[in-house]
Amino acid sequence: MIPYGKQSISDEDINAVVEVLRSDFLTQGPCVPEFERAVASYCGANYAVAVNSATSALHVACLALGVGAGDLVWTSPITFVASANCALYCGAEVDFVDIDPSTYNMCVSSLAEKLEHAQNNGRLPKVVIPVHLSGQSCEMAEIHALSVKYGFRTIEDASHAIGGSYQGAKIGSCRFSDITVFSFHPVKIITTGEGGMAVTNDPELVKRMARLRSHGITRYPSEMTRPPDGSWYYEQIELGFNYRMTDIQAALGLSQMQRLDQFVIQRKAIAQRYDELLRDTAIVRPFQYPNVYSALHLYIVRLPSGVLKTSHREVFERMRADGIGVNLHYIPVYRQPYYERMGFKPENFPQAERYYAEAITLPIYPGLTSEQQDLVVRRLLTPSGYQTIF
């Protein structure tokens, strides 16, 4: 099976993990803060908080921004459910903004229109979570301008996007947002096995997120309600969680950071080759804005309705049967039964619906060979006479 994505683990990665296993620290040791500093420095941000998943990072980011009961959070419908679930964990409500038909990211014009209606109805969002699908940044300057106008806070869900850039700055600089969240799941650009990180330029936000990841506990006297009883003293000052990243994970992440730019360059080369192989076909290839450097976590194509002699589903299932692990990123969140019960209607998101009917994610990862890529394209184009329609 050729998977749609997978990790790349080197001997250096293995040695870094083994070194921690032989050390005195397996959980909260020196590698975690070192990894945080490395990511923050790479992105051009002031602070970072490492956690056990991007889902946890989204959750503590929402809490740090004060999301709670009665609040409203907006995100994209074309994302993993975690981008919406994080708001529900806080007791808030969720709504969705339809996608741009070219980038599949949150549509800025749809966001502006929805915000105007929400202002008229007295129901503006507290937080908006744009999702950098496939590693391409949303139009963050425009979203930031809307945040200033309408007063919402912004969390960039950059789970796909570490290593990318926008308007010449690394994704994660938080130039146009309050917090940016990364994922280090094995299929992402770099991996810690499982893990995530939230970066910010706000010293108060980083303090709160760091406290929330560890049971709401502080060891800083300046945050305590009374003088410490001794050097052993700590206080739980709010309800937090056990969202900590281990030193084992952080060591792997630190090692992977050494190859981050190389990983993105390799993905870029694979994507460019797909572009060439599919150039003279009716298949819709990914669109890239010139001011965006995508991390290319995913290579998503669309099979336009009415072009193929078979259905979107048949193409997907046939490729899977041929040993090619294509995927679909993502089922619109509002289609999930849990969200359907909230009353969301597919007809309110026409671009997301068209996308869902046509999208297929092709394999892309460092280590994918030209021969494997050729096989993917041949299976996509030629079985059952497909070549006659392109």
Rank of each mutant, 00 (worst) to 15 (best):
Ile99Lys: 00
Arg175Phe: 14
Asp11Tyr: 06
Ala84Leu: 06
Met257Trp: 05
Gly367Met: 09
Lys170Thr: 08
Tyr355Gln: 03
Gln272Ala: 04
Pro363Val: 01
Ala359Ser: 14
Val108Tyr: 02
Gln272Val: 01
Met1Val: 10
Gly44Thr: 10
Leu124Gln: 13
Ile129Leu: 05
Ser255Asn: 09
Thr75Asn: 01
Ile14Ser: 01
Ala198Val: 03
Pro130Phe: 02
Phe80Gln: 02
Thr361Phe: 09
Pro332Gly: 10
Gln373Gly: 10
Ser305Leu: 12
Ala50Gln: 07
Asp178Glu: 14
Cys107Asn: 11
Glu238Tyr: 07
Gln272His: 02
Arg273Thr: 06
Asn291Ile: 09
Ser183Arg: 10
Tyr47Phe: 15
Ile389Asn: 13
Val206Met: 00
Ser370Cys: 10
Val20Ile: 07
Lys188Arg: 13
Glu116Thr: 14
Ser147Ala: 13
Ala16Arg: 04
Arg335Cys: 04
Gln266Thr: 05
Arg175Gly: 15
Arg211Ser: 04
Asp13Ala: 06
Leu260Glu: 06
Ser109Arg: 12
Arg335Ile: 05
Leu212Tyr: 01
Val264Met: 02
Asn327Ala: 12
Asp95Pro: 08
Ile143Asp: 03
Asn327Cys: 10
Val20Pro: 00
Ser255Lys: 08
Ser134Arg: 09
Thr382Lys: 11
Ala161Gln: 03
Gly135His: 06
Gly168Gln: 13
Lys345Ile: 02
Val376Thr: 07
Leu308Lys: 11
Val32Arg: 09
Leu65Lys: 05
Pro228Phe: 06
Lys126His: 12
Leu308Tyr: 11
Lys6Gly: 00
Ala352Pro: 05
Gln167Leu: 15
Asp275Thr: 07
Ser305Met: 14
Leu380Ala: 07
Ile300Ala: 12
Val315Glu: 10
Asn291Pro: 01
Asn85Phe: 11
Arg259Glu: 06
Lys207Ile: 00
Met140Lys: 06
His144Lys: 11
Val108Asn: 07
Gln236Tyr: 04
Gly216Ser: 07
Cys90Gly: 04
Asp24Met: 13
Ile9Thr: 03
Leu362Asp: 08
Val181Gln: 03
Asn85Thr: 06
Leu298Ile: 10
Gly343His: 04
Tyr150Leu: 13
Val49Tyr: 04
Ile143Ala: 03
Ala161Lys: 04
Asn46Glu: 15
Pro350Ser: 03
